[in-house]
């Protein structure tokens, strides 16, 4: 099968993660990974993003498949159940809104900017070396720290399940994947 341009989008995903180590403001670019899949599912009613363009999925496929960093075992049954997938989506959403709330607090001046990246919603990792001030408002930086936390956390989870199960195990419980599939189901019923 001939490789297409979109088969190399994993390079962008990797670059994104690396850029966050140098300047946290690059984290804003991650919004593309939120809006593009939603727009494709809303407009076209397909999971075209997952199927073709998802660089993160490609990265897991490459590391777990080509580089063999995966046990290639079946994912546990509960992890592919609707309970877990929808539950994880709700949890992810809740954490996302909490992050937005923290951003709002900084914008409103009620709280100071915290130069940390929160891994797995728990571990606060100092990240001051990637912050060099912002021209706009510290709130914009707070969002960047929060959003990068979301992206790094999901990458770490994805890497763990990649090693334990199949390369793209993340795709089974990816909140964006679950959400776009729900949108497609609703659109299809209409």
């Amino acid at each position: 099968m001939k490789k297409q341009w979109y088969d190399y989008l994993w390079i962008l995903s990797l670059t994104y993660l690396i850029l966050g180590f140098f300047n946290i403001m690059f984290a804003w670019l991650g919004l593309i990974c939120f809006f593009v899949p939603l727009l494709i599912s809303l407009i076209k009613g397909t999971k075209g993003y997952c199927n073709r363009y998802c660089g993160r999925g490609q990265l897991f496929g490459l590391l777990g498949g080509t580089f063999g960093l995966s046990r290639k075992k079946d994912i546990p049954k509960w992890m592919k159940s609707k309970w877990f997938r929808y539950g994880f989506l709700i949890f992810f959403f809740a954490m996302f809104f909490l992050m937005l709330w923290n951003t709002y607090l900084v914008f409103a001046g009620a709280r100071d900017l915290k130069e940390v990246v929160t891994l797995l919603w728990t571990f606060k990792v100092p990240w001051h070396w990637a912050y060099h001030g912002t021209l706009i408002h510290p709130g914009a930086a707070q969002f960047a720290f929060g959003f990068y936390s979301v992206m790094l956390t999901s990458t770490v989870l994805g890497l763990i399940t990649m090693v334990l199960f199949k390369p793209r195990s993340w795709c089974v419980y990816c909140p964006m994947g679950t959400m776009t599939q729900i949108i497609c189901k609703i659109k299809d019923k209409k």
Binding site: K47, N51, R52, G57, K80, R168, V172, G177, Q181
Partner: peptide
């Protein structure tokens, strides 16, 4: 019923 429509299968089908 359990398919997540990720499309991994489509990519590998010869």
């Amino acid at each position: 019923a359990d398919c997540v429509a990720c499309g991994c299968c489509v990519k590998v089908c010869p």
